[in-house]
Design a protein around this nucleic acid. Structure first.
Lengths: 200, 200
DNA sequence: CACTATACGGAATCATGGTTCCGCTTGCGT
DNA sequence: ACGCAAGCGGAACCATGATTCCGTATAGTG
């Protein structure tokens, strides 16, 4: 997990001509990485991903200079989804429900994809980058503001708290090989949301 | 971080005769490890701990067969403290306040010692072991039961949820080199506790 | 159907960090 | 003061896992 610039995934217009099999392989790698990362977390071996994609490690590295860049591409996808959810949530007539929707969808994905919360925990920079790219902070900030303005949400909650809370939610609900099964993300979310309502 | 039986720290009665400097070194190692682990998390190098303790790595390994055993000794200390808090909390006439006290003290320590929540996250087995050793589950279970019986706590919360919640709290409030400062553990705890109160 | 630029696979290479080993020191009983 | 078992330091060793390299294979083209 070295530090490096970044990978440009949706840069289709740039390199238009590339062999058909190469394009196919890149897709397979992304798919495999998606599955492997979400199932096993940040520690999957590149070799696993390559095997799952049916290619050699060299091919993985030709597409993504290093492990972190590959991860970034995937995290970007997730955050793009969050932003999309936030955007539609802004249309909800009920501010609290809108906020709740963002939280719920984020929690679901975060609970399903082990790599997301691990990245939020161990590679916050990567996540911030992803969040910026899609303007997630503005969207979420707006959602929070409205919810507070409507009097539904406790006033001291900030957009800056969201990353922490989502990270906590992800780690709290992550299933571990050892130990008893964790609390379900639905219930954890319920508790958090109840805690975020404006005190009576 | 290999898997291995365990380290017995308070086994004074067993090996009564050991050179004075050896005894002193063990103490120093423990102190250094405490500080290093809590500040840098599970990933500190044994070499760092040795350096901080003013001894060579060999000396560390003479006292603790491997890194995990050393960590176990420290986690045991923390959990012993949790149990102590739980025990005195049981004396609180107000069940909810008793529970709150356990949560507050646990949260404080967990927030202060980065290794605790990382261990809860990545080495749950080690934590379960520590919890069992001091009977923390029974104590905490009792605290929860009382709080629910008094009607103060939502009825669907279980002792099994505690590890998850504490882990989430620890990871949510862990300060990260990169990124903005996280939510304070006090505020996060407030939210969780508010969420755990019985719904009106 | 040749030809070549583009891709591919996976062994070899490197870096990191835990653990072991052993020759040297030193506390302490005589 | 002496002798030696207990203890010490830290270089060497090993395992793991990311990343590089290069000989081989093949899509695409004339």
């Amino acid at each position: 997990m070295t530090t490096t610039p970044s990978a440009l995934e949706p840069a289709a217009p740039l390199e238009p001509k590339q062999r058909a099999d190469a394009r196919r392989n890149r897709k397979r790698i992304l798919e495999a990485a998606r599955r492997q990362f979400s199932e096993h977390g940040l520690d999957v071996h590149i070799e696993e991903i390559a095997r799952a994609a049916g290619v050699g490690v060299g091919t993985v590295y030709r597409n993504f200079p290093n492990k972190e860049d590959l991860l970034q591409a995937l995290v970007d996808e997730r955050f793009a989804f969050f932003a999309e959810v936030a955007r539609t949530a802004l249309d909800d007539p009920d501010p609290w429900d809108g906020f709740r929707t963002l939280m719920r969808e984020s929690a679901r994905v975060t609970a399903e994809d082990r790599a997301v919360s691990e990245a939020m925990d161990q590679l916050p920079g990567l996540c911030n980058h992803a969040a910026e790219k899609v303007g997630l902070d503005e969207l979420a900030g707006e959602l929070i503001e409205r919810a507070q303005a409507s009097g539904a949400m406790r006033a001291d909650f900030t957009i800056d708290d969201i990353p922490s809370v989502m990270c906590g939610l992800g780690r709290a609900t992550a299933s571990r090989d050892d130990g008893p099964p964790p609390i379900s993300w639905e219930r954890y979310l319920e508790i958090i949301l109840a805690g975020l309502r404006a005190p009576a």
